[in-house]
Design a protein around this nucleic acid. Structure first.
Length: 265
DNA sequence: TTGTGTTTTATTGCCTCC
DNA sequence: GGAGGCAATAAAACACAA
């Protein structure tokens, strides 16, 4: 059978003699005649080897034997019984020794393969780590830049609000004149078609706002649809316009400063 | 020479497949 | 149920520094 204890050499030899390799012959009806002949040769040689094995200690295989086994292993790392017996005959070994050699060789190959896999994974990991660190640094730099820009923007907005407060009061007659002009112009014509809005270019004027923020809604159109007193309508719309402009600006910058979104410039 | 670490050969027990 | 593979391990052989 397959098992034998090396400490009990006699028992081992006794159990080894009718080994499975010999028994195989009886079961290997499906193998070639050549294979059967090889087994017979083994039977004859075994009787000689058995006696010499009694006194023999564990021996390492010779250089040529290992070389041949390595060649065979490279060709195919699994043994079929026929190849095992053939190799054993060629190398003067027991088929069992060949089988054990292949088994141990497969174990060594597996260990090496694990080492190779590990080093490949490690180098991949190291490369990814370097990439990650670079990205992290880039992210930090961008965050700092973003903070600076936010601060700058807030300062600018504060200054702008200050200046608007100083210039904004539109009083009495001027206000009425401005309102009437705008209202008549917008009420009678399409601002987009003939450019009927003829007022002076003023930073805070509706037209200027319209040009600055074309998507924030046309003030002139708003005025077109208002009912009631023109002055009141203008005041209401002007307030709405201011709100819209602030929201528009804020939204735009909110998007721009959003860390999670790509900047929409 | 000897102690120690490494490699190789062989065994054992368990598992899977036919 | 037997054959064969595999993981774990024992044991012999070998390498090498002290």
């Amino acid at each position: 059978m397959k098992r034998f204890n090396s400490s009990d050499s006699m028992a081992a030899l006794i159990s080894m003699c009718p080994s499975k390799e010999v028994n195989q012959r009886k079961e290997s009806q499906g193998y070639s005649e050549e294979f059967q002949a090889m087994l017979e040769r083994f039977e004859q040689e075994d009787s000689y080897e058995e006696t010499s094995l009694i006194l023999e200690k564990k021996r390492r295989l010779g250089f040529d034997q290992v070389k041949a086994l390595e060649r065979s292993f490279e060709h195919d790392n699994k043994l079929d019984p026929e190849r095992k017996v053939k190799l054993a005959l060629e190398l003067g070994l027991q088929p069992r020794q060949v089988a054990i050699w292949f088994q141990n060789r497969r174990a060594r190959w597996k260990t090496k393969q694990l080492e190779r896999d590990y080093s490949a994974l490690k180098s991949n990991f190291d490369a990814l780590k370097i990439d990650y660190n670079n990205l992290e640094q880039e992210h930090e730099a961008l965050t700092i830049k973003l903070k600076e820009m936010k601060g700058k923007f807030n300062r600018n907005r504060a200054e702008r609000n200050e200046s608007v407060k100083e210039e904004s009061p539109i009083s009495g007659v001027e206000s009425q004149k401005f309102t009437a002009q705008n209202f008549t112009g917008s009420a009678t014509s399409d601002s987009n078609s003939n450019g009927a809005v003829k007022e002076e270019s003023n930073v805070d004027s509706p037209r200027c706002f319209n040009e600055s923020f074309p998507n924030s809604g046309s003030v002139i159109n708003c005025l077109q649809y208002s009912r009631g007193s023109p002055e009141r309508a203008f005041q209401t719309q002007f307030m709405r316009m201011e709100e819209q402009s602030l929201f528009a600006v804020n939204n735009e910058f909110c998007n721009f400063f959003s860390v999670d979104q790509s900047p929409t410039l």
